[in-house]
Lab assay of single mutants.
Amino acid sequence: AVCQVIGMYDYTAQNDDELAFNKGQIINVLNKEDPDWWKGEVNGQVGLFPSNYVKLTT
């Protein structure tokens, strides 16, 4: 993983390639090539999510 982030809001996947997560959930970021849509993993599920829905862990 590149880094870990925390969901600031609940996110519901809109497409099959997206990653759903809940507020407060830890997401392992796998790829930040696109500044707006990062690739991440939660509980074995991998997908894209909007980078503005998360904050970096300290």
Rank of each mutant, 00 (worst) to 15 (best):
K32L: 08
L19D: 03
T57S: 11
Y11R: 08
M8W: 09
G47E: 02
Y53L: 11
K32I: 00
D34T: 08
Y53P: 04
L19N: 04
Y11Q: 04
P50H: 00
C3R: 06
Y53V: 09
N22L: 10
F21A: 01
L19P: 02
E33Y: 05
D17L: 12
G44N: 11
T58F: 09
F21G: 03
G24N: 09
K55Y: 08
K55D: 07
N31S: 14
N15Q: 11
L30D: 01
T58H: 09
P50L: 01
D17T: 12
I26T: 15
N43D: 13
C3T: 12
G47M: 00
G24R: 01
Q45A: 14
N52F: 03
Q4C: 06
N22H: 12
N28G: 04
I27K: 02
T57F: 14
N31E: 15
I6C: 08
A20D: 10
D36H: 13
Q14A: 10
N28D: 10
V54Q: 01
Q45W: 06
I6T: 08
N52K: 15
Q14L: 08
Q4W: 08
E41L: 03
T12E: 13
E18T: 01
Y11A: 02
Y9G: 11
K55I: 09
A20R: 10
Q4H: 08
V54K: 01
W38H: 03
D16Y: 06
N22P: 13
K32R: 14
K32D: 09
L48H: 09
N22R: 14
K23L: 03
Y11H: 14
C3N: 10
T58V: 12
L56S: 14
M8V: 15
V54C: 08
G47Y: 01
V2R: 14
V42A: 14
T57V: 13
Q14I: 06
F49E: 02
D36N: 11
N43A: 10
F49P: 02
K55A: 12
K55V: 09
L56M: 12
N43M: 06
T57H: 14
T12R: 13
T58M: 07
G7S: 15
V46K: 09
N52H: 07
L56V: 14
P35T: 15
C3M: 12
N43G: 10
Q4Y: 07
K55M: 14
E33A: 11
N52L: 06
A13Q: 04
D34G: 08
Y53D: 02
Q14S: 10
Q4N: 10
D10W: 07
G44D: 08
T57A: 13
S51E: 00
N28F: 10
E18A: 05
I6D: 00
Y9P: 02
Q45F: 08
F49K: 02
N43H: 13
Q14Y: 00
N28Q: 08
W37S: 03
E18C: 09
P50R: 09
D16R: 10
I26L: 15
K55Q: 11
